[in-house]
Write a protein that binds this DNA or RNA. Structure first.
Lengths: 162, 162
DNA sequence: ACACTATTGCAAATAATTTGCGTTAGTGTA
DNA sequence: TACACTAACGCAAATTATTTGCAATAGTGT
């Protein structure tokens, strides 16, 4: 069960438009009703800097400066942030959840290497139109909120090795 | 680590073409180098009859007639069958692996209801062209083997409840 | 400075998945 | 059909991922 913060203001702090360079994490957290803690700030900074989806383990290992927050805290934070919409949960086929920071990057997908697990980020997603189309055909569904799409293949490096 | 069977013949027993109505599971297993056991046959039959992706738990519960195989056996079988290509592993966003029988159905995707978890199967996938396109742009990848695509939304029933 | 409660750490509980190992049972061959 | 070989299975135990309870700590608004 996820404890919901009281939403004072529910306005995302997105810079709007395509030039979302940097985001004031403190303001972002506040605008979502979260308290601004060192842990949350560092978590967002780490996720943003990583640029690639991270598992809880990854986050804990990459944590710098201070001691990493407890794993339970990381799970709680990431889940809350995901519900709030500034972090996306992604399945890379590894069986463990990975999280990606979304405010500064447009919606996109990935290719994962079956050999070494390398992840490459793909350009803009072109599935929005498809969603509308699907809803016309669907018997049971009247709305689509999101989708997950990941490709699996072999990266150049692994292709050479084999 | 997955124990690989010795592949006597590595020819899939697919009926070829689009009219893959029923498949002789025994022959299919044999052609993939697996032994034909009652457990495997029942597993394939169950998966095919279900028509929807099942978790290991689901399989165990739906098992009929004889006592369900041990969970460890189910995991081993499903993983082997997945590697062999006649079962696909799917992520429905639940955090647990689901498996779907593929020989008799064309490649497709699903919509999952965020409310009740209902799964609807979508018509034919239209992403094949996109894969080729992606490979042109990709820096690190030269081949794509597969992809996962699932949509999440709200089904009519849940839309009414709320 | 103070009260209120979200957030965190720590330990313990669940759940999912994997692994080791001895036994059982398909398969090919004599 | 009997026999040897080894995949497949059951069972118990080990891992790994994720969640939950609870008391202590620390942001926030007043």
């Amino acid at each position: 069960m996820i404890k919901k913060p009281s939403f004072h203001e529910h306005t995302h702090a997105h810079t709007g438009g395509g030039s979302a360079a940097t985001v004031d994490s403190a303001a972002l957290l506040r605008s979502l009703g979260f308290r601004v803690t060192p842990g949350r700030l560092a978590l967002l900074a780490l996720l943003e800097a990583a640029g690639t989806p991270l598992s809880v383990q990854d986050v804990s290992k990459k944590w710098q400066g201070t001691k990493s927050p407890d794993i339970a805290t990381l799970y709680r934070s990431l889940t809350d942030l995901q519900v709030a919409g500034i972090v996306q949960r992604i399945d890379l086929g590894t069986g463990t959840a990975h999280f990606e920071y979304t405010p500064t990057r447009p919606h996109h997908h990935h290719i994962i290497c079956n050999g070494c697990g390398a992840v490459e980020e793909l350009e803009h997603c072109t599935l929005v139109g498809l969603e509308d189309q699907l809803l016309i055909t669907s018997r049971q569904f009247k709305s689509i909120y999101s989708h997950n799409l990941e490709f699996f293949g072999q990266c150049t490096r692994c292709a050479i090795k084999k």
